[in-house]
Design a protein around this nucleic acid. Structure first.
Length: 260
DNA sequence: AGTATGACCTGATGGC
DNA sequence: TGCCATCAGGTCATAC
């Protein structure tokens, strides 16, 4: 479910409440989310920081690091009753924090330092400069959308924002990276920054059921120009938006504005 | 080594 | 109403 702007929104609502709080209990329902390894006993351990790392919500504890990926359907919610999709509950003095995840594509990782799979991710899209973006991008030979979805290239872009970015930059999703000129990489970098900033500003995109920890929906879906707009007229040229499949992901674009 | 392809889960939706 | 196929914001293991 959540991509960078949604996770950023979640982290911003989690951090003020959790910072300096002490975990009293952690309870875990056996599920795929844990990949066979549960976190150790965390009772009495203090939360130092909560931050976003790509699409992960990272809890820096006084002892160890808890990293939560929400997958497609994961939610972190305060003070909700348990249900069949509750995978983890952390109790604090004044409130509880629950992880719900219907499809179990999310994951909970623990490490004494940042867990390996998290550390292996590429730079943050909002922190990388133009030169590094260009240098990293041009080391790959693939369809540009596949590059944007590759978390080792950059951490945090997902299907919605890849499609929206490529529309803004007027680049066809299947365009080969080795054929993209420097000027277009510059455009992609610039548009990526404004797109993600605007999406964060709007609290992310709520397509069906995404909500932040306060139960509030984001509103950036109102600003989508191609995602889930199949058949609707392009906002720039009026041509019907097309939907295809690329790497088994629904891919939306304007066939006129985004030529191969 | 880098890239493409199923696999993993459950629920919602749409066509017949 | 029921059944079946398809789709969904993501990664991961395996096959070329």
């Amino acid at each position: 479910m959540p991509e960078l702007p949604e996770v950023e929104t979640i982290v911003r609502s989690l951090a003020p409440r959790l910072k300096a709080q002490i975990i009293r209990t952690g309870r875990y329902q056996p599920s795929r989310v844990f990949r066979g390894t549960f976190p150790p006993e965390l009772a009495g351990v203090r939360v130092a920081e909560v931050r976003r790392y790509g699409k992960y919500v990272v809890f820096d504890l006084d002892r160890g690091v808890l990293a939560v990926h929400l997958g497609m359907t994961g939610k972190l919610l305060f003070d909700v009753p348990a249900n069949r999709y509750t995978r983890a509950v952390w109790e604090f003095d004044e409130f509880s924090l629950s992880l719900e995840d219907i499809r179990q594509f999310g994951r909970v990782l623990w490490g004494e330092t940042i867990p390996g799979p998290v550390a292996a991710l590429g730079p943050d899209p909002l922190e990388i400069n133009r030169g590094d973006f260009f240098r990293r991008a041009t080391t790959y030979r693939t369809a540009v959308k596949a590059l944007l979805l590759n978390q080792r290239f950059l951490r945090g872009m997902g299907n919605i924002y890849a499609d929206e970015l490529l529309f803004r930059a007027r680049v066809h999703p299947e365009r080969r990276t080795e054929l993209i000129p420097t000027s277009v990489w510059t455009t992609l970098w610039r548009e990526m920054n404004t797109l993600l900033a605007e999406a964060i500003q709007a609290g992310g995109s709520s397509i069906s059921d995404y909500v932040n920890t306060a139960g509030e929906k984001g509103s950036f879906q109102l600003q989508h120009q191609v995602y889930a707009k199949k058949g609707q007229p392009c906002r720039r040229c009026g041509t019907a938006i097309q939907k295809t499949t690329l790497q088994q992901r629904g891919t939306h674009f304007c066939p006129r504005c985004q030529e191969r």
